[in-house]
Amino acid sequence: MSRIGKLPVAIPAGVKVEVQGAHIKVSGQKGSLERDLRPEMQVSVENGQVVCKPTGGDKQTMAYWGLTRSLIYNMVVGVSEGFSRVLTIEGVGYRASVSGSTLTLNVGYSNPVAFALPAGITGVVGKDNAITLQGIDKDLIGLTAARIRAVRAPEPYKGKGIRYAGEYVARKVGKTGGKK
């Protein structure tokens, strides 16, 4: 039995959930999200809650049970509250700026890197070179943050690069430069 899958997803005020077979649509004040679900799952709306039930009892179906419930929960939270992810830039001369849907990164390369933000994701750069990504789709925000981080991942010697806020980068000791 899935402990997560058994929990119903409460539908807050202002959020509308429509289930049509293996397709779910969640609408709220911030927007709407749609997703096709696994055919092994039965999803229904009962008493202001979304309930997931498996159709089979094998191990893989039980894994999909918890996954399906988590995906629906993220959709409901996304359209009602939204999600955000913060990235920080470390390094002398490293900076970022946003104009429209293009994030420009100056992170030590000979030319600035222009990163196109996907539709539905907005980016804001703070004073301390903190990039804040906001949107309603948790999957898309995580994927976008990972792609931005991959432009210049933090290196282990000086710690320069783009990292998630609060991420610990294990530091290595460099060469000592002493005599033999």
Rank of each mutant, 00 (worst) to 15 (best):
D137V: 01
A96H: 08
G28A: 10
G108W: 04
S32E: 15
T88L: 10
Y168V: 15
A114W: 00
V51T: 05
S99L: 06
Q20G: 05
R147T: 03
G159E: 06
S80Q: 10
V17F: 03
L133A: 05
R149T: 12
Y64I: 08
G14V: 05
Y64S: 12
A153N: 10
D58E: 12
Y109F: 11
G161T: 04
V43Y: 04
G31H: 10
I4F: 08
R3I: 12
V17Q: 07
M1A: 11
I131L: 07
G108C: 03
T132P: 03
D139K: 10
T102E: 11
I24N: 03
V151Y: 00
G57C: 06
P39V: 14
S70C: 05
R163M: 10
I24Q: 03
N74M: 00
T55W: 15
E81Y: 06
A13F: 07
A130L: 01
A22Y: 11
V17G: 05
S2I: 04
R171I: 08
P54L: 07
G91P: 02
G120K: 04
G56K: 12
Y164A: 12
T122C: 02
P8H: 02
Y164G: 13
R69M: 09
R152L: 09
R38F: 13
V17Y: 07
G66N: 09
G82P: 03
V51A: 02
H23L: 10
V125S: 08
V113D: 09
T68G: 09
L87S: 02
S70A: 14
I121E: 03
G48M: 02
L71P: 00
A10Y: 01
R95V: 00
